[in-house]
Design a protein around this nucleic acid. Structure first.
Lengths: 177, 177
DNA sequence: TAGACGTAGA
DNA sequence: TCTACGTCTA
């Protein structure tokens, strides 16, 4: 699978294999794996249709990453950040992460940008998944984890009381443990 | 010249020569040229004394970079950013650059952090200078420009009406055009 | 012009 | 925890 739209590509990047590791987000951009320096969802316009090309799941959001062949990814926007873990530990609520205006409080996520792209990709096109993790020394690593399909999506109420999008993603050709 | 303090180094970095170019700030950190991902002034603690080790002049501040063997560098803090050019064109005043709180307005710069380090380095230790420039396509390049000495420093009132620090820096062994 | 799962160091 | 001459895309 290899569909190009300007600089954006759907499917595997030639030369990049599952398990390849990177240290910085900039590297992902350089080799074409992911096209957002901070944004978790990258997308492009393919024949008038906006489709997701890759996501980065690096913790910090309430994603479910327990399985190695599937994951539940949280949409972007609405201040929905930082509510990982399902225990009642409500640590981490530092506004928007340090950047941005941070004027308005939590809001419902909207079906726009990355969220819209992922919705458009449901059961349609493969999406590259990069899993990020934080090492003991505080540094980070990004590992390419192959192609996933967005199985379905739904809205649910997040810990902040606002609606967030959830995207069920399954590895293409995976065992689906 | 090569004085080490933990991971910080005063003087030339072995293997890095004048004219060497880099694309990202992260690269500067990786090879040890500069140790701040965004900050323009890097410094370290050398035997209880905080000294500057390197600066990045990449435009955006009201630095004077007209000469190739000397420059006048603007201190950090106080919202003193973005007032380059000496014509009356007061464009560029986007708060603090996009990040940070941006609650309080312009303030006098304080003799702390990088400013203090540069002051402590006056006529004392060499400081690495990296000159950054913006290319026509909007991308940036950082070029190592060798060792400079902080000749003197002073305060003056910036375009926002607040006091800013200015550091006169001359190339070590330069012609001093 | 502004948003975004950034990064390193004090 | 916060600052900082970041850096890409839409």
């Amino acid at each position: 699978i290899f569909v190009k739209s300007g600089k954006h590509v759907i499917g595997d990047i030639p030369g990049v294999e599952i398990g390849d590791k990177f240290q910085y987000r900039v590297e992902l951009i350089l080799i074409g794996l992911h096209h957002q320096i901070q944004g978790g969802i990258a997308y492009g316009n393919f024949g008038g249709k906006v489709l997701a090309t890759s996501i980065v799941a690096s913790g910090g959001y309430a994603d479910d990453l327990h399985s190695k062949d599937s994951l539940i990814y949280t949409g972007q926007g609405g201040n929905a950040k930082n509510t990982k873990g399902q225990g009642g530990n409500a640590k981490n609520t530092k506004g928007q992460g340090g950047n941005a205006k941070n004027t308005k409080g939590p809001q419902d996520q909207k079906l726009e940008r990355g969220n819209l792209a992922l919705k458009n990709s449901v059961q349609k096109n493969p999406v590259r998944v990069i899993r990020g993790s934080e090492l003991l020394d505080g540094s980070r690593t990004y590992v390419y984890d192959g192609l996933y399909l967005v199985e379905k999506y739904w809205q649910e109420r997040g810990p902040l009381g606002k609606l967030v999008f959830k995207f069920q993603m399954n590895r293409i050709g995976g065992t689906g443990k």
